[in-house]
Amino acid sequence: MTRTEQQQGRIHSEAAEWHARLESPDMDWEAFGAWLDADPAHRDAYDAIALLDGEIEARRDAIIAGLPANDVDDEQPVFGARRRWWIGGGMAAAVAIAVLFVPKMATAPTVPMVAYSTGATQTRMIDLKDGSHILLDRNSRLALADGPSPRVEMQGGAAYFDVRHDPSRSFLIQAGDYEVRDIGTTFDLVMTPQRLGVAVSEGKLMVAPKNGDGTSIVAGKRIDIVMPTGEAKVSPVATASVGSWRSGQLVYQATPLALVANDLTRYVGRPVIVDPAIGDLRVSGVLAIRDGAGLVQQIEAVLPVKAVDAGGSVRLVGSDTR
């Protein structure tokens, strides 16, 4: 079916109107559904508008940098309106100005670090200005300076990173005495006081001792570092299982129990310590995280292991040791 330009124009207008109304308190979702159903062209038109809008959001900083400063065309600012302007848009305006006048500030450490932490039952999505995302797992902490060259200081727990590759800036993660850099990828990072693990599901990155030479880790590989000794091991990982905690599961393939215990610690809310005698036991399979409480029992069910309550922590020992 061919449409007149007029009909096409009407469909695009309607699509834009629906999109602008999504946040409205009296948005009528059923009517929107009926409109989408009325003609397949409606869905295509809506997709185009929503994608464009999403793209503008994702490229916001680059667009702002390409526009003249926002207040230039403000005619006769009334004092009241002006004041609200700064209260409401102060931060965004400050960012815009920084981008416009001092693009070389990129590496200056003027962007404040913001701390994020999660409790035992919640994850938290952190959206960075450049369109990258970090999903912070339960019982995890990091600090972020979301500047033109973002810096993350991982303090403990796990986080799943989806970082845009962009050679014009650097994205650096510090984790204890190590750092992750040259990132253009999605990957999972798990940190405990003793260990650091980075598993890459897409692209590649570099893991290195602070200021030292690094190891390149590509998709399908993981690196596990025992931090006090610096002993590191690179091994294969199924990309689909990287960051599986995001969907409430822990997926293991012949993973040493000592590494599994890192994950358990995060969900059980107490340190889970593995008797060195069984630290090399391998775990394969899928554990359901749920509220975390049942994880230790699940381990007891699949391995010849039993959990001993040791005061503030849980100790996993061989089930035949008495």
Binding site: R21, E23, L67, A81, G88, A92, A96
Partner: peptide, 30 residues
């Protein structure tokens, strides 16, 4: 979109109704 104000904040700032804000946004997107 660029400065990150909500529809109601833009409405209050410019002294127009929320639905006028929506209309402007729709026109802009089109």
């Amino acid at each position: 979109k660029l400065d990150g104000l909500s529809h109601s904040e833009v409405a209050a700032e410019l002294g127009i109704s929320r639905s006028a804000v929506e209309k402007h946004i729709a026109v802009a997107l089109r």
